[in-house]
Design a protein around this nucleic acid. Sequence first.
DNA 1: CGACAGTTTCAGCATACGCTGAAATTAGTT
DNA 2: AACTAATTTCAGCGTATGCTGAAACTGTCG
Lengths: 205, 205
Amino acid sequence: MIGRGPRGERGEQAAKIIAAARRSFATRGYAATSLRSVAQDAGVDPGLVPYYFRTKTGLLEAVMQPPEAFGAAVAAAAEQPMDQRGRAFVQATMSLWEDPASAEILRSIILTADQEPAAMHRLRQLFSELVLAVVSHSLPDSERTLRASLIATQIVGMVMNRYIWQVGDIATLPADTVTDLLAPTIQHYLADPLPTKLGDGWRLS
Amino acid sequence: MIGRGPRGERGEQAAKIIAAARRSFATRGYAATSLRSVAQDAGVDPGLVPYYFRTKTGLLEAVMQPPEAFGAAVAAAAEQPMDQRGRAFVQATMSLWEDPASAEILRSIILTADQEPAAMHRLRQLFSELVLAVVSHSLPDSERTLRASLIATQIVGMVMNRYIWQVGDIATLPADTVTDLLAPTIQHYLADPLPTKLGDGWRLS
DNA sequence: CGACAGTTTCAGCATACGCTGAAATTAGTT
DNA sequence: AACTAATTTCAGCGTATGCTGAAACTGTCG
């Protein structure tokens, strides 16, 4: 109704679309989100979405692109001395998820991982960027990836229950309490000896 | 082409539809599954789906309805003596997920939980039926639910990485090895003392 | 045989989807 | 002022969606 033609700064409408898409992907999920509804939430003409992002998966990739220094705190925890590293890692992960902007991106990825290869790829990437980095580099590769995978299970489980499903006590406790509860487990996976009887190719000691 | 009218035993077509829907919900997910594609996979006329299940969520509820003695082994683990219960619970959970039929149901629930309230409800129900039952009944309620929630985080994390996303070493290791690796953590959440500094209303000792 | 309830088929409605193409408008450059 | 490139609007194509309604068929029972 206002008329056609450019409006405000370049990329202003695109940013509004990304914000609205993030909100929708993070709540309704990817498949249940339509380009038309995104445009409406963004207060923008529906045609603008394909114009800026070409396809729906194009929009998804823009949504999953994190701002600068996204997991910097988590990566920094990998520099801590070994005996405090478990707790530092949990703490950094919690603060990442307690930030609504970051949580929206991560939720979008998790809720889309089983529908779009791009999201699955992004998830694997975050796994090796953030989790694998925390494990001691001086270990044999097989033990390094195993310990990282164990840590991932505990972190992911906390995330699903607290931030995705909001199920159980873990969802309502204060963040520091959750940190206190999980830090010992992460520290255990990080540095304690693991069960010795492992299958072929997994013998550690 | 064969002609109209009944075919085989009563409920035979309905069963084929449920089986096809389970397969699709467990892989593509709920929103990405169409009633027409389910009918095609089941080798059945599209009109039969609304006929037997009325709505798409009706079909979902049928899909989520487990066969008899679904989590019996897991529930039975709750009867074990306390010092072996952690390992028994992990073992039972693993065998539930290693069974393809059960895994299909559970995958359907997990992939749908964030899109349909019915699936979320079913998830919470499984949580209290299976996980809460394993914690000692002689504890104060607040500690009981907290320990159950901690166990849920570790189990859910393993499930997501191994059975849903198939990411990391945990996805490829033999089931018994995974059991060996996780049992100590579950046992810890089950019976070991928890950090004493907990927030208001959560002081344990 | 004839009524009858239960099942299968089929046509289709109303709506929504992702995406395209072209026209209309703007802002910036010369 | 003329020209150009980028942006916004809008109409709509082709396809798919969940679901409905009625007709055609089957098997069972009187």
